[in-house]
């Protein structure tokens, strides 16, 4: 995981070219396979695509887009979801019923499909993707947080804050939120992975990021067009890298979940 982050942060300093900088790309370098395959040559370690872009450089830049979308998506979805979950759980009653029915309806549809349909109405673009991710992602947060709040609410120390007359908002932020934080962290870890995958899939279908800022999914999509001509490296490597990133995140998520799950202790 750390390596993935480091690559995304500092990778651009070491790549042979900036894939956004058209002047750095020359068509004469196109269709080069990875260097260990016949016909391949350094410095294009993983080969080049149909326009002569270095695959490795593209992956490094693409991973930045993917990671940023993953993290920001979690922050947006988490922010909305946690807030709604806290409100639903703490105040109960009609607010709770409304929020949770909405969540139920949405949960009966797969997130991927909702994101896909939303993006079919929106323009391509990073901010629209984030909106779509927030719309599909808030439900799980809201549900988890609400469930935990219902438990925490009954605890004496929360009841006590009412006795001393603390305003609701302070009780929520200072006394309830810290208690549900572990679950939020565990969930967020898993969600980052999910979001990166969702974004990649959307981009692959041409419904994600614009072509000017290719994410890893976009790179795969580009590569798919030339897969049948035998240029496997253009699409396989970016996909492999997505898998590595998400795999790392999921392992971390599994570990955190097992650590914090009292039922398996």
């Amino acid at each position: 995981m750390l390596i993935v982050l480091l690559v995304a942060l500092f990778g651009p300093c070491f790549t042979v070219q900036n894939p956004y900088n058209l002047s750095a790309i020359s068509l004469s370098d196109a269709y080069k396979p990875p260097f260990w395959v016949e016909g391949g040559e350094l410095p294009f370690v993983l080969g080049t695509d149909q326009q002569g872009r270095d695959i490795l450089s593209a992956i490094v830049y693409g991973s930045r887009v993917s990671l940023v979308i993953g993290f920001l998506g979690v922050i947006f979805a988490g922010g909305i979801g946690v807030a709604l979950g806290l409100i639903a759980g703490y105040f109960g009653g009609k607010t709770d019923a409304l929020i949770m029915r909405l969540a139920d309806v949405q949960l009966s549809f797969p997130t991927m499909l909702i994101a896909l349909l939303l993006m079919s109405f929106f323009e391509q673009g990073v901010s629209n993707i984030l909106i779509a991710l927030a719309v599909v992602g808030w439900v799980r947060y809201a549900r988890t947080v609400r469930g935990e709040v219902l438990v925490v609410k009954k605890k004496e120390y929360v009841e006590a804050t009412k006795v001393i007359g603390l305003p609701n908002r302070q009780t929520l932020v200072k006394h309830v939120l810290p208690n549900v934080l572990t679950s939020i962290i565990v969930l967020s870890t898993i969600q980052i992975g999910n979001f990166i995958l969702t974004e990649a899939t959307l981009s692959f279908l041409g419904l994600g990021v614009p072509i000017t800022r290719p994410s890893l999914g976009m790179l795969c999509s580009n590569g798919f067009k030339v897969l049948y001509s035998g240029l496997w490296w253009v699409s396989i490597f970016p996909g492999l890298y997505i898998m590595l990133i998400v795999f790392g995140i999921n392992l971390l998520g599994d570990f955190l979940r097992d650590e914090f799950n009292p039922r398996l202790k």
């Binding site: 795969c220 897969l227 396989i236 795999f247 995140i249």
Partner: peptide, 22 residues
Amino acid sequence: SVTGISLPSFWVGMVLIFVFGL
């Protein structure tokens, strides 16, 4: 199984096409 949930499904499809088809 962790690998399984980390795999982008379009990528799996591409790899299968490449390996078995091409």
